[in-house]
Design a protein around this nucleic acid. Structure first.
Ligand SMILES: [Mn+2]
Ligand SMILES: [Mn+2]
Ligand SMILES: [Mn+2]
Ligand SMILES: [Mn+2]
Lengths: 220, 220
DNA sequence: AAATAAATTTAGACAAAACTAAAAAATAGT
DNA sequence: ACTATTTTTTAGTTTTGTCTAAATTTATTT
């Protein structure tokens, strides 16, 4: 596995994430994601294509090749292991870890990452509930559904939260919801799509549509 | 405190180390240390001078300003804390930590480093026995002398080792010497400058001139 | 004090990664 | 089918950090 620059890695990771949504990623989408200009994206796409990490024909959008996906999973492994380290060992809060991991992920020393993984006890998910690829790049995809889709009176475990801001963290802490919390929907209101949620035998409480849309529960 | 590029940081740190030896650092010295060319050094010296990190007049050599020294101590703090982390928590051996720390040191997030320091229990020295600057950049200079200077029959504690290769590590492990070992010189031989060393009440053993030159003991 | 050698700086080139502005291609609207 | 809009690419610059080769300054010999 060759080495890639920080900039190349940031592009590769962003493409990986975007292609989970739409299958073809476009120049403008990627420019927006990376807060850069479309012209810069085109330049980099040519470079990544030359390195066989990308399938790309001009004006047609792009997808990572198998090799590109492997590289992306390596970066994501590093990112999420460092997030776990920061939260679990250094007691960073949930909303602080991403920014720091954004830099740490670019230190590409296999032994460092594999020893870190071992030191952390081979965690399976990061502090946001996203799965951590193993040393072979294998990632455990957990089937999850949005809280807005969960049937009434069926308990489920919170698996991940898509927003990572301090604002949503503040709200989730206030409502006592975190990754791993088992909850159920008791009622939905059509007027504003708010819902009544209950954790265990505690009294039910309300959460807004906006909050529910960012909470994903394990579907088992 | 502004932010500096990885390249600028590597130059600043190298100058700091070189000026511990000679007081003025020269272009060729620095080029050799960084495995770069003298022309590149001159370019960077102009830049660091413009940023007021360096006192530099052409053809005269250079030294860091007070501000430059502060920046250097920040880099060294990060480097040595990561070395300690790698050795103590991830069980890297002594000769492996430097290379990895060389990259990790450039992640400049104050909170990360201060929390790491706390997590590690505020270590005072790195795995090579070199002192770790505190959060204010204060560094504890321990008076040390080379083992070649230690008087006969006077016990002293090994404080640091200047070479950091796996070869010296192998030898030191075989001789049971590490940072913190209390030892004394029983005899010196003029023919090859080898010496008989004793640790506690164990039988004395021989170490070569070359090895002795790389071992420094606390002078108290 | 020249002459020679060594160290240092300058000049000019290059690669990586970004940008702006203009051109070209694809898409949408009528 | 033609026009207008949006998207994407190209062309030409800029900044950072590196290099080689040539010029300049300083240091060392004779
Ligand atoms: Mn990143
Ligand atoms: Mn995450
Ligand atoms: Mn470094
Ligand atoms: Mn060290």
């Amino acid at each position: 596995m060759l080495n890639y620059s920080t900039s190349e890695e940031n592009y590769i990771k962003a493409i990986y994430h975007l292609q989970q949504m739409d299958d073809m990623v476009t120049t403008n989408e990627l420019a927006a994601e990376l807060k850069t200009k479309p012209a810069s994206v085109t330049d980099m796409m040519k470079k990544l294509k030359a390195k066989k990490l990308l399938n790309y024909e001009r004006y047609q959008g792009f997808r990572l090749t198998n090799e590109g996906n492997k590289v992306a999973l390596g970066i994501i492994r590093r990112h999420r292991l460092w997030e776990y380290f920061l939260a679990e060992k250094l007691k960073f809060t949930w909303d602080e870890v991403h920014e720091v991991a954004e830099d740490l992920e670019h230190v590409t020393n296999k032994k460092l990452i594999d020893k870190l993984d071992e030191f952390l006890g081979f965690p399976r998910v990061d502090p946001h509930g996203d799965p951590i690829p193993d040393a072979n790049g294998k990632i455990e995809i957990m089937k999850k559904i949005c809280l807005t889709e969960l049937p009434l009176n069926k308990t489920a475990i919170v698996g991940s939260v898509s927003d990572q801001s301090s604002k949503i963290l503040e709200l989730l802490e206030h409502k006592n919801i975190s990754i791993g919390t088992r909850l159920e929907i008791k009622k939905r209101f059509e007027f504003d799509n708010s819902m009544e949620v209950r954790i265990g035998r505690q009294p039910a409480f309300t959460i807004s549509k906006q909050l529910a849309e960012n909470i994903f529960v394990l579907n088992n």
